[in-house]
């Protein structure tokens, strides 16, 4: 199963890598912004249309 932790948008918490935030760039008709909502590292990314594979560093 592909999970959020493999996604470019996932930013884990420093003190607890199992939790983090899904941070995305959005442009709506009036403004551009970054949005963030809580995500878990092991959340299923299979059904997420915004999944982008994280580049290995």
């Amino acid at each position: 199963m592909t999970t959020c932790k493999e996604c470019k948008s996932f930013f884990p918490l420093e003190n607890d890598q199992t939790k983090g935030d899904c941070v995305q760039r959005v442009k709506d008709p009036r403004q551009a912004y970054y949005q963030s909502r809580p995500a878990k590292a092991d959340d299923d990314a299979g059904a997420c249309g915004s999944f982008q594979k994280k580049q290995k560093t």
């Binding site: 959005v26 709506d28 009036r30 403004q31 551009a32 912004y33 970054y34 949005q35 909502r37 809580p38």
Partner: peptide, 23 residues
């Protein structure tokens, strides 16, 4: 508060909105 989507608009210096997204 713990789970709502939050956002920061480009050029903004102040943050915080009642809804989850600007619209």
């Amino acid at each position: 508060l713990d789970n709502k989507t939050i956002f920061i608009t480009d050029h903004a210096q102040l943050v915080g909105y009642t809804g989850s997204l600007p619209h």
